[in-house]
Design a protein around this nucleic acid. Structure first.
Length: 427
RNA sequence: GCGGCUGUAGCUCAAUGGCAGAGCACUUGACUGUGGAUCAAGGUGUUGUGGGUUCGAGCCCCAUCAGCCGCCCCA
């Protein structure tokens, strides 16, 4: 096996051959389109950060177990960024008095987490982040949900294929209070709710009782989690859904009391998108409102709302549903053949002329038999192939073959550019 | 970090402990001025890697690496 002698890639990293690169760019382009449709600006943060940035705010597990950390040559501990939010908080805090609020920013870049690779999870991935800071309202939350929904629509995922499930932390806290669940148990109970869909009902009941819930509290909790009209008791959610309807994305969004999200810093609206057909069980994207983000890095208190989407899960989904545009091996739709040594430079000059007219053009890199050159053109997905052979050279002409329709014509050298342009536009 | 499954041609996969296989793809030719189609001839290979058991290992055992499934966590 040839790979035996090759040095392996680092575990969990990904190699982007042109086909995979096209897929990554497709996701990037749609993320950008959705972001810009709502007026968000692209930004980015360092890929390398000190470990202190995350130690201050992120969950312990994320820093201790799931980050790539290594000493630099000076002995400082450097982290390959596992998430973007702490960097965002710092950058906002640094310019808190100069920025025009609300800040609407989006970003798409690489992140690293030292986890066990699996389907839908790698150690190196790209993540789309969208945040709005400085406005604390359900309508602002709705805008972020709408951006996520717009992305789903732009990539061709229908509401029947992918849906966004929304809940509200404050609503759930109020419900927990009503059941007499003390505030210090909220986190445990939230985690239990998060885990519920993965456990067998009987085992989950057992687990919930072990957390210290009374049987009546458990019964009450299960009633809450089955109540899909519960959102009507939350003013915030009522306003959120009203705004989603006005924004034209309500068909993608449902209330679900089972959505909690593990992250500590969410304080209000939380949401997650899933593949409804159930092929990939992981969340496509997730986010929510966070109130105290900047305070923790030394800035003035500032509320924000945002979400993040990894490229891996959505990539699997898009591939499965056949939503990735067909891959074209060459970005050039035109190939100029090279007939023989004596006509080689004339072919190159012809190619240069077409390029000067704004077209992407590849040449065959050396003289070769025409069948070989046409075969290559076919494999590259080229639409038009030009032949400048002895007959054409003598007559001052060029033969243009359209590979898609299998038709060809011979035109005078002076008319080649126009003729090729016409052909390209007609298909 | 924990538990389980898998690893054979470039790809998808077969072979009871007893001589390396199929389809697709690839190369060349039939076609010396025209791609896909057809036909013919062909490399298709240290059976992931390193040990062990055995007269003999793709198959059994151990280790290791990688991928996949679950736990944990999350995008």
């Amino acid at each position: 096996m040839a790979s035996k002698s090759l040095i392996q890639s680092v575990k969990g990293t990904r190699e982007f051959y042109p086909e995979e690169m096209a897929q990554r760019n497709f996701i990037y382009e749609k993320a950008r389109q959705a972001s810009q449709m709502f007026g968000y600006q692209e930004w980015d943060a360092p890929f390398l950060e000190t470990i202190e940035l995350y130690a201050a705010k992120s969950g312990e597990e994320l820093v201790k177990e799931q980050s790539f950390v290594f000493p630099d040559r000076g002995g400082d501990l450097i982290t390959l960024r596992p998430e973007l939010t702490p960097s965002l908080a710092r950058m906002i805090a640094q310019k808190q008095n100069e920025l025009a609020f609300p800040v609407r920013w989006w970003s798409f870049g690489p992140f690293w987490r030292y986890e066990r690779p699996q389907r839908g999870r790698t150690r190196e991935f790209f993540q789309w982040n969208v945040d709005m800071l400085g406005v604390n309202s359900p309508e602002a939350d709705a805008e972020l949900v709408a951006i996520a929904a717009t992305f789903l629509r732009l990539v061709g995922l229908t509401p029947q294929q992918a849906a966004i499930f929304v809940n509200n932390r404050r609503l759930m806290d109020a419900q927990f209070d009503a059941l007499g669940i003390p505030p210090e148990k909220r986190l445990d109970v939230s985690n239990a709710v998060d885990r519920r869909s993965k456990m067998e009902p009987a085992k989950w009941d057992e687990y919930a009782l072990e957390l210290g819930l009374s049987p009546s509290q458990l019964t009450g909790l299960k009633q809450i989690l089955a109540d899909y009209d519960l959102w009507q008791k939350s003013d915030e959610l009522v306003r959120l859904f009203r705004a989603l309807e006005a924004l034209g994305v309500k068909d993608y969004v449902q209330f679900d009391p089972n959505i909690m999200r593990g992250l500590l810093y969410y304080t209000g609206t939380v949401f997650e998108a899933f593949d409804v057909s159930g092929s990939v069980r992981r969340a496509i994207l997730g986010g929510g409102r966070y109130d105290n983000l900047l305070r923790d890095v030394g800035g003035d208190p500032l509320s924000g709302v945002g979400f993040a989407m990894g490229d891996v899960v959505v990539g699997i989904l898009l591939k499965e549903k056949g939503l990735i545009p067909p891959f074209v091996p060459s970005p050039a739709p035109v190939l100029v053949t090279v007939f023989d040594d004596s006509l080689w430079m004339q072919s190159y000059a012809l190619a240069a002329e077409l390029r000067a007219a704004g077209m992407n053009v590849i040449t065959y890199p050396e003289p070769a038999k025409l069948p070989k050159q046409f075969k290559f053109a076919d494999r590259m997905g080229v639409k038009i192939t030009l032949v400048l052979g002895p007959d054409e050279a003598l007559a001052g002409k060029v033969t243009i073959k359209h590979l898609v329709t299998a038709t060809q014509e011979t035109v005078s050298r002076a008319q080649v550019v126009q003729a090729v342009q016409r052909l390209l536009h007609s298909t």
